[in-house]
């Protein structure tokens, strides 16, 4: 009976890992194919964050309740705060220096 629960936890952990690695691979494809700076920022924030959170959750299921799992929770919350701050810094820097994009269909900022 214990063996069955152990196998079930392994399956759940690998489902989390494969889902995360799909998001990380889609980040790399989107970095090459997207035509514009701002759309690349969308790929660099959302897809990368979902992938890294999913991979770390898979490691957390694989670990169990331990002191190492507490460090993994610290890494998740730290990445969630810092990456959103970094992306907003780059976006506001690009907006202040008038880097225009060609694919915008409607714009509210007058110039």
């Amino acid at each position: 009976m214990i063996n069955l629960i152990n196998i079930l936890m392994q399956i759940i952990a690998y489902v989390f890992l494969i889902t995360g690695i799909f998001f990380v691979l889609s980040t790399a494809v989107a970095m090459i194919r997207f035509p514009d700076l701002y759309t690349r920022l969308h790929a660099g924030s959302k897809c990368l964050m979902a992938g890294s959170i999913s991979v770390l959750m898979g490691c957390l299921v694989l670990e169990g309740i331990n002191l190492n799992s507490l460090k993994l929770i610290v890494i998740i919350i730290f990445l969630l705060v810092t990456n959103s701050v970094a992306i907003h810094v780059i976006a506001s820097f690009a907006n202040n220096h008038k880097i225009k994009s060609k694919t915008i269909t409607k714009n509210d900022i007058e110039d």
């Binding site: 980040t27 970095m31 690349r40 660099g44 970094a86 992306i87 780059i90």
Partner: peptide, 11 residues
């Protein structure tokens, strides 16, 4: 441009 390179290095 330069912000493209910063975003790629972050990833």
């Amino acid at each position: 441009s330069i912000p493209d390179r910063i975003v790629a290095m972050n990833s």
